[in-house]
Design a protein around this nucleic acid. Structure first.
Lengths: 209, 209
DNA sequence: TGCTGGTTTGTACCGGTAGTACAACATAGG
DNA sequence: CCTATGTTGTACTACCGGTACAAACCAGCA
């Protein structure tokens, strides 16, 4: 069941938009067959039904993300800089594959119930961030926080939801520019925060009227 | 079809865990009937099928969130303080209803395809944050950012994913404490950011070896 | 007490769709 | 030309969501 021929693989991507739009359950196998040009019998020969289709599409996406993030992270820079690179990498891939992202999120429940995808999700999205945060504390480029795993989860959310909103919005003419814009916004938030120095002082002193 | 009796409503919540666990599509109508004790025919008398069940459960949750956040936001404090209150409120509700949250996220695609839920989602989660960010710039308690809507989206993601992870983890003995913990982590991130002042300087000057 | 409207429920049924079975066919490599 | 592996059409099964409907139930009320 593994190792389906390259030609079929590429055809299968034709189903991504369909699934993104209607959800996997709103998409009939026959629709997928028609949209991809692969006859139903052939799909079943290689893949394990509808879930198999989703699993194939998404594990591909997830692998892509984690490898791109992987190279972004493995430089000699400090952790803070590498975090910025990781954010840019992840958003880059997401913006470039809007349909797959939407399919992923729309059928998140199903995806997390497919064991292979669940771990791929974790390693693609969460692990690198958590790792980076820890390294940042070690090399002094990022702040020590009270609850590292909760913060890592939040950072993960900040990045992913931003990427998702980019994927849902009208697919723009220039994906790279979009990715850069969002990546700047996310980094601005995650690194510097939103408080003004004034409000920061107020809070440290306890506010008075 | 609106206005189903209070008794049935409370029984219906018995289906939340089921749906959270298996997803709506992995849950048969007959399972729901059995779990809630409401016979299938009665469900169909009041509700519009499976989607109706989901819609009922989630619109309730969403209303709750937006009203709680609503009161948290309508104080005389500065926007920064109100943002903290809003985060706490949202996380409080989420932690208190883990099954509903999981159901929501697991069937996000379906939820967003139900028009009523889509707008409820938007008003419950995104709008108050976006609003608050704008007000914070106005009253000087929050920083002006380059791309406010992208940042608002990120903040929304940071909060929501944190809440979700709390909902997925083993439901703890003390939900209120959990909520407080996560809310502190999220605020720490969103307000102050992760950069150390050292790394901030490095970046402003351009780093040198 | 009986009438009337809404609700509740059991049961039987229909239609659509995922998945399977299988046989015919294609293709390639030896 | 033969065999192994892939490809495809067709027919079929099983299951499940949703509907139909009739019988019962349960007010309130004249």
């Amino acid at each position: 069941m593994r190792k389906l021929p390259a030609k079929l693989a590429s055809q299968l991507y034709g189903a991504a938009e369909l699934i993104a739009e209607r959800g996997l359950d709103g998409t009939k196998i026959d629709d997928i067959a028609e949209a991809t040009g692969i006859p139903k019998a052939t799909i079943y020969y290689h893949l394990d039904g509808k879930n198999g289709v989703l699993e194939f599409l998404l594990s591909d996406l997830l692998d892509l993300i984690s490898s791109e993030v992987g190279v972004a992270v493995s430089t000699a820079e400090d952790a803070r800089t590498r975090l910025e690179a990781a954010v840019a990498a992840q958003l880059g891939v997401m913006v470039e594959h809007p349909f797959l992202c939407r399919a992923l999120v729309g059928d998140l429940g199903r995806a997390t119930r497919l064991p292979e995808l669940a771990v791929a999700l974790h390693t693609a999205f969460y692990e690198p961030i958590q790792q980076l945060l820890a390294e940042g504390v070690a090399d002094g480029s990022l702040r020590q926080v009270a609850d590292p795993s909760a913060v890592a989860m939040s950072v993960f959310g900040a990045i992913t939801v931003a990427g998702l909103s980019a994927a849902v919005d009208a697919p723009s003419a220039d994906p790279a520019a979009d990715a850069a814009r969002f990546s700047a916004a996310v980094c601005e938030l995650v690194l510097d925060g939103l408080a003004t120095s004034r409000s920061r002082d107020d809070h440290e002193l306890g506010e008075r009227s």
